Amino acid sequence: MQRVNMIMAESPGLITICLLGYLLSAECTVFLDHENANKILNRPKRYNSGKLEEFVQGNLERECMEEKCSFEEAREVFENTERTTEFWKQYVDGDQCESNPCLNGGSCKDDINSYECWCPFGFEGKNCELDVTCNIKNGRCEQFCKNSADNKVVCSCTEGYRLAENQKSCEPAVPFPCGRVSVSQTSKLTRAETVFPDVDYVNSTEAETILDNITQSTQSFNDFTRVVGGEDAKPGQFPWQVVLNGKVDAFCGGSIVNEKWIVTAAHCVETGVKITVVAGEHNIEETEHTEQKRNVIRIIPHHNYNAAINKYNHDIALLELDEPLVLNSYVTPICIADKEYTNIFLKFGSGYVSGWGRVFHKGRSALVLQYLRVPLVDRATCLRSTKFTIYNNMFCAGFHEGGRDSCQGDSGGPHVTEVEGTSFLTGIISWGEECAMKGKYGIYTKVSRYVNWIKEKTKLT
């Protein structure tokens, strides 16, 4: 034993070699072989497995989906700052455009905790909710729209109204504003409101030439003092309507412009014939205590009207009353817009006519005020429907199939267009061939041609 100890002390290297040989010859039971080890760690190889990531292109799944990435790591994937920024906006807080917040056709661009709407022409605001041009839906104005110097929408209202708090709607500024039905039992019968379409306001006024200088022999019209197929109006439903009495009662109609003036057809009036105007009328054979009678003290036909040349060209006249009318729910003026808007309103496509005229061709006159909704007829169809001249200051309205029309005794009465609950004068009943005849239409004086003249002559002093 002493000898062994001496050998170990003198030859430590020998001992180490012996131990190493023993270990190498022993069977290893701690580690699995290569094949079995792979069965336990069965993990798919990654895209760049075996390579240094710093030297390969980034992978979106590896960089940002398996674990949260930084902007720089995302930049490695896209290799483009702009594309990385677009991805980053949604990656950080989701897609803010998912709810489609942009209105009126706006395009949404996502941002971090926010979004941006790219608005089409005519709109602005956070969600493109603000109209900035009158060309689109009248700028959301209830009545009139004008573009300011910086191309912003400025709404306005006709006389007797003021802008509401929203700067879009119009509200009454006087007790009985024009064009409004205020009798409670008839307010439910107000005709369907007309909503502004998209309009090209630059070209809204037709490029028409008034044929002022045409000389033409007097034409022989049949029954051209021209509501057939209409309905009984309720008291106060058309408070701007008046009836004219002269040699015979209810020979023509008219509309209240203001307390002192009536507008009617020029062919209705004769110099030297006494005319009485009755406002607030409903049943011409009954006294309903809503009527107001006034005498006409002055007749002003349009300066281009000449019955000797043509009885229905420039067929418009103004009547001055001896005493002002007292405005109330049964006696209310009709609204008159400017030339541009009167023309736009007419193009809405349908209007209402009213009167006490004959209820059928050569038949009896109506006792109760009649009204009828009539569609506008395109000019080409209008011209083809008659052998008589249709001037540019006239328009056609009615039904091709016949059966409904204005008729004798309705002449001078109103053709009105309702705009968001307020009625505007767009025409004056003038003439036609018979009444409600198939293929024939009622012919009306186009008020847009005469609004400046009306307003100039009827100013209240």
Rank of each mutant, 00 (worst) to 15 (best):
I214R: 09
V278L: 08
Y47K: 05
C268H: 00
S169G: 08
Y371I: 12
N203F: 07
F395I: 00
D33A: 12
V331K: 00
K260D: 02
G412I: 14
F251H: 11
A397V: 06
P333D: 01
S448I: 01
K274I: 06
H400R: 14
E171I: 11
E86C: 04
M437A: 15
P177Y: 00
Y371C: 06
P235Q: 08
V56M: 08
N36F: 09
I344F: 12
E456P: 03
L460I: 07
V248Y: 11
K168D: 02
I15W: 07
S70L: 07
A233M: 08
T342E: 03
A37W: 04
V447M: 07
Q219G: 13
L189Q: 09
S255P: 00
I390V: 15
V277Q: 01
E86Q: 15
G363Y: 09
T287E: 14
K68G: 10
E73T: 15
C178E: 01
R140I: 04
H415C: 02
G398T: 04
R404N: 06
Y47G: 15
V228Q: 13
I336Y: 02
P239S: 02
G253Q: 08
R379P: 14
S169A: 12
L211S: 11
A436E: 13
R162K: 08
D111G: 11
K362I: 04
C170K: 02
G272F: 06
G50L: 12
K152G: 10
C407P: 05
P175V: 08
T190I: 13
G179C: 02
K126N: 13
T276C: 04
F221T: 08
A37C: 04
I390M: 06
S99H: 06
T29D: 11
E66R: 10
L41D: 15
C170N: 00
H282L: 11
L318D: 00
N203Q: 09
T85L: 07
V92Y: 06
N42G: 06
R46S: 14
T225R: 09
Q2I: 08
I210P: 07
Y161L: 02
K51Q: 15
P101S: 02
I334S: 01
E434R: 06
M394F: 08
T264H: 02
I214N: 09
I428V: 11
V228G: 05
F196G: 12
L318C: 03
E193Y: 12
Q167R: 07
G412V: 06
E35W: 06
E67Y: 04
D198Q: 13
S217K: 07
V419W: 09
E434S: 13
E159G: 07
S220V: 12
D405E: 14
E76Q: 15
K234W: 11
L20R: 03
V273T: 12
I336M: 07
S156G: 07
A164F: 03
Y441H: 06
G363L: 07
E259Q: 07
A164D: 06
A250M: 07
Y352V: 09
T218R: 10
H282S: 09
R43A: 14
M65L: 05
K459N: 15
F196I: 11
F395L: 00
I390Y: 12
N283T: 10
P101K: 03
Y312N: 08
D223K: 09
N306H: 09
V199Y: 14
N304I: 03
N304G: 09
T133Q: 09
Q90N: 14
T271Y: 06
A250G: 13
V257S: 00
H303C: 04
L189I: 14
N48T: 15
E79G: 15
I443R: 04
R83N: 15
C18H: 04
K293F: 10
K68S: 11
S187N: 06
Y161W: 10
S184A: 12
L130D: 13
F221E: 13
F31R: 15
Y352S: 10
H267M: 03
I309T: 07
A149E: 14
Q167T: 11
S25V: 14
G427H: 01
L369I: 07
W88A: 15
C141T: 00
G106V: 01
S204E: 11
I443P: 02
Q237R: 06
A317E: 00
H282I: 09
A397T: 06
K387P: 08
D198C: 05
L460V: 04
D110E: 06
A250W: 06
I275S: 03
E171F: 09
I136L: 07
R379C: 07
L20D: 02
W356E: 02
K168F: 13
L14P: 08
T215Y: 09
K459A: 07
S169C: 04
G272Y: 06
K274V: 07
T458Y: 02
T209Q: 11
E35Y: 08
Q2L: 14
I136M: 10
Y115M: 02
Y450P: 01
G246R: 05
S204Y: 13
T209Y: 11
V419Y: 12
I299E: 05
L41V: 15
N38F: 07
S70F: 07
R191S: 14
T16E: 04
I300K: 03
H34Q: 09
A266Y: 02
E76F: 15
P172K: 06
G442Y: 05
S187T: 12
F87I: 15
Y201A: 12
K440T: 14
D33F: 05
I334K: 01
K137R: 13
L163Q: 03
F238Q: 04
L14M: 09
Y312C: 04
I112G: 08
P375A: 14
N452A: 13
R75G: 15
I429T: 15
P324N: 05
S430D: 02
G280L: 02
E418K: 11
V227N: 08
